[in-house]
Amino acid sequence: MSDFVLFDEEFQQIKEVIGRLKMDAQAKVVFIVDKNGQQIAAQGDLESLDTTSLASLTAGNVAATDGLAKLIGEKEFPVLFHEGERDNVYISIVGQRVILVVIFDERSSLGLVRLRVRKATQDLERIFDAIQKKVEEEKERRHEGIDSPFAEITDDDIDSLFRE
């Protein structure tokens, strides 16, 4: 399985798309997580949020729901919605690879979020396709002898991480 690589150019594009989505959907927070629970990008009021935990639990949630879907013969449940007293969470799958999460309160509505997410999903799919292509190109270049930045990690580099 190939690694997931994120370059600065696409990172900025993703941030722009989810920043716009946050505004258009009048959401509090919008973030993107990969299906393994790694946070890719986030926009909004993040200070009061533990985004690392949020990312891991979101991915766990989606994975469990995917498992449920398969059990009953569905391919996936592309949208999950959790309604709370104050805040709501809208989770959707983008391009079968990443998870888009929108947190919103009474200033917005499910209908508005759903509408804006649909538009943003198309933009995000384009960006993730481009990343995929770039990673494959990069891989081919490496076969031609261009070093990865980690080609020269030494035992010492790694040992130094564990020095107290």
Binding site: F4, V5, L6, F7, D8, E10, F11, D34, N36
Partner: peptide, 13 residues
């Protein structure tokens, strides 16, 4: 699947 984030200069494993 390691996640290499060049934008944030992070490796996630």
């Amino acid at each position: 699947m390691t996640f290499i984030n060049y934008a944030a200069r992070e490796i996630n494993c």
